[in-house]
Structures are given as structure tokens and as C-alpha cells.
Design a binder for these strands. Structure first.
Lengths: 201, 201
DNA sequence: ATAGTATTAACCGATTCGGTCAACGGAGGT
DNA sequence: ACCTCCGTTGACCGAATCGGTTAATACTAT
């Protein structure tokens, strides 16, 4: 892509990025026209083609950006340093919501790109996603200190419970256009506290 | 639509329905071509236009079919007659999985149609969805007998927990192509039993 | 004015779209 | 063998859309 893109005022860069995320997240790669992205970003199609040589380049650029932003945000959130399982999940969701404020459609875009099958981009796509693919084994619970939890609790089931509910939250957030992010966060915090009182000694 | 459609062997009807659900669920109404649906169903585009006068008619027919099938299946599942909250949710998920076996992409289609904004179908769509819209207040908990549950449990939070986790399950099921429906059901059953041991006296 | 840069309208050839229509093929009936 | 009916299709149409190019415009600093 054209280096000039980075010299743009940040607000304009953001508009273009988000327009790309938005359009590509709603339809497949092939069914997402460049002029629609340009229109959403408030620029002309020609200018979009000036910054990105072709559609494929823009698409892959967006994917790289998404991967880079998520891993960076997640690392900076401190959720990996958390020892308390519940606080760790809370920090994780906090990080995600922060990103959703700045890039509302990025996660939807990434999710869709993950399953994109179009031969024009498939291979290069897999190459970008590859490292992230193995990491998605987070359905299995991390190591926990059983002495912290009430007796008789099936920790495996507990983790499934809170993991699925958290995913249900994320699902809610992405569904149906705009939502009150702050309310979601505070609701989730309440749920976390509920779980703590339920499971912790 | 053409009455001849109903005279088709059921297997062929099913193929056409599912092809429509599939294609319309992956892209917006405008970006879902008729020839793609025909190809997916294994018939020619001409024949598809023989059964359905135009794209709009097919789309609305599918929506009506989806609404009709879900409400009917849900009613027949007996989940409304259940008094036990947990068993009620289990029956509800059972009904949904049964439908997913026969119409794998119907719920994804219905979900997407719910937010479809294309002016060509928007108004007629709303008219079909309207009754179902008010009903979606199931985020608030039904009436429960507190004496059945352990003391000190915040029933409101408990319901949010299991409701969200259930949605997380449904989310899992729809995501990422084909999955083992039977495994999902048995996993969910385990989770239900876990909740019972956790919350019930 | 000038030079350089950011931005666009207009255009191009190729493809796709919704929809039509004449024709094909097979299964009786005569 | 011929006819007829009917499910089905390939070929076609005009319009729209697509990715991408280019020549010209608007803007800005000198």
C-alpha cells in the first residue's frame, strides 16, 4: 500500500479503516465493492485506489491491522498478568470493549475473514491468521488453584459456564448495530461479582 | 408463489428452501443472487423463477416459512409446559437443535433478515416479524418460586448467567460451518445438570 | 503565476444481475 | 409413430455493477 496513507490525519485514516471493516464485515469479500467502502469513508473511489493498489491489498491490509491491533490491545490490557481467573476475564472483556469503541466493526470483520473462502485472498489470509489459529484453544481451562474455590465445585464445568456466558455477552455486543458499551461493561462486572460470590471461598 | 412448489417431492422442496436460507444468510438481500441459490439447490435459475415470480417473493416466502417453523417447533417442544426453569431451557435448546438438523441455515437466515434494511423488502419484512418482535423480552426472568433455590442466590443474576451461557452455546453452534450437533446437546445437558446442583436445593 | 500535491469525475471493458422465452426431453395416450 | 402435456433448461436481454485507469480539477504553499 501507498506510504502516503500514513501521512493522512489520523481521523481520516480511522474513517477509511472503519469503512473497510464495516463493509467487509457485512458481506463476503467478493460482494464488498470498493466504491461502497469509499462512500462510507467519505472519499472518492479513485482516492481509495490511490492509497491501496487494489481490493485485495486493502483487504489484507485490514486483516493485518486487525490482527496487530487485537494482539497488541490484549497484551497491553494486563489480562495475562492477572492471577484471579475472574479478573482476568474481566480485563479481557474491558480490552475488547475499548477496541470496539474505536473500531466498532473490527471484530466482526476479523470473525468473517476467518472463514473467508474466496480463492483470491484465501491463501494470503491463512498466512496472516496462522499464528492466531493455534492460540484459540482457550476452551480448555487454565491451571487453577483448587483451594481458592468452594468445595464440591466442578471447576471444569464452572469454567465452561463463565466462558460461554462471556461469549454470549460478546455475541450480544456485536449483534444489532449500535449498543451502549458502558452498560454492557457494568452488566458484565455485576456478573463477574456474582460468580465470585458463587464460586470463591 | 406457484402452487406447483408444494407438489414437489419433499426432498426437493427442502433442497430449495435450504439453498435459499444458506445464500441469504451469508450476504445481504441485494448481494444474494438467484442463480447462486438455484445452483446450491441443484436446479436451474429458470426453474427457480418458475416457482417464485421474483427474488422478493422467494425472500419473503422464506421469512414466512422460518417464522412459521420456529414458532411451531417451539410450541411443539413442550418447553412452555415445563415448570422447572432449567428443563425449560433444555427443551428449548433441544427444539432448536432439531430444527438445525433439518434446516441448518434457517436461524442464521432469520437473524440476518431481522436486521435487513433493503428498501425493496424492508416494509413487508417488518410486517412478518412484527408479532415476534415484542416477544423477544426474554431477557427478563420468568416468575420463579424462590423456595426451590438455595438461600442467598440472586435469582436475577442467576438467570442472566444461564441465559447468556445458553446464547453462547447457540452462538457456537451457528459459527464456523458444520459441527457435531449431538455433542453440543450432550455438553449442554451436562451444563444444565451442573446448574441444577449449583442453584437448586 | 507556478509548481506540486491531494482529490475527483468520467470513463472503460468485463462481469453479473433479475427476469424472459423458446425450446428440449421424457412419460403417457392414441 | 405421432401428439400432448409438463417439468426443466440453455440461451438470451437490457440494465446495473464491478475493479481499475486516467485526465482533469481543486487546493496550497511559494
Amino acid at each position: 500500500m501507498n506510504e502516503k496513507f500514513y501521512q493522512l490525519p489520523e481521523e481520516k485514516q480511522l474513517r477509511i479503516l472503519n469503512a473497510g471493516f464495516r463493509v467487509f464485515s457485512k458481506n463476503s469479500y467478493r460482494k464488498s465493492p470498493m466504491n461502497e467502502i469509499a462512500g462510507e469513508a467519505g472519499i472518492s473511489k479513485s482516492l481509495l485506489f490511490f492509497y491501496f493498489r487494489n481490493k485485495k491489498e486493502l483487504y489484507l491490509f485490514l486483516m493485518k491491522k486487525a490482527e496487530e491491533l487485537t494482539s497488541q490491545t490484549l497484551r497491553a490490557s494486563g489480562c495475562y498478568g492477572e492471577t484471579d481467573l475472574f479478573e482476568m476475564m474481566y480485563q479481557g472483556l474491558l480490552a475488547k470493549t475499548d477496541m470496539m469503541r474505536k473500531y466498532p466493526d473490527m471484530s466482526a470483520f476479523a470473525l468473517r475473514a476467518y472463514y473467508e473462502e474466496d480463492e483470491e485472498v484465501r491463501d494470503d489470509l491463512r498466512r496472516i491468521i496462522a499464528p492466531y489459529t493455534k492460540l484459540s484453544t482457550n476452551k480448555t481451562l487454565p491451571k487453577l488453584d483448587p483451594s481458592l474455590f468452594k468445595e464440591g465445585i466442578d471447576l471444569n464445568m464452572m469454567y465452561q459456564d463463565i466462558f460461554l456466558a462471556s461469549e454470549g455477552y460478546m455475541y450480544h455486543m456485536q449483534q444489532g448495530g449500535r449498543i451502549d458499551v458502558d452498560k454492557v461493561v457494568s452488566d458484565y462486572r455485576k456478573l463477574i461479582d456474582f460468580w465470585k460470590s458463587l464460586y470463591l471461598k
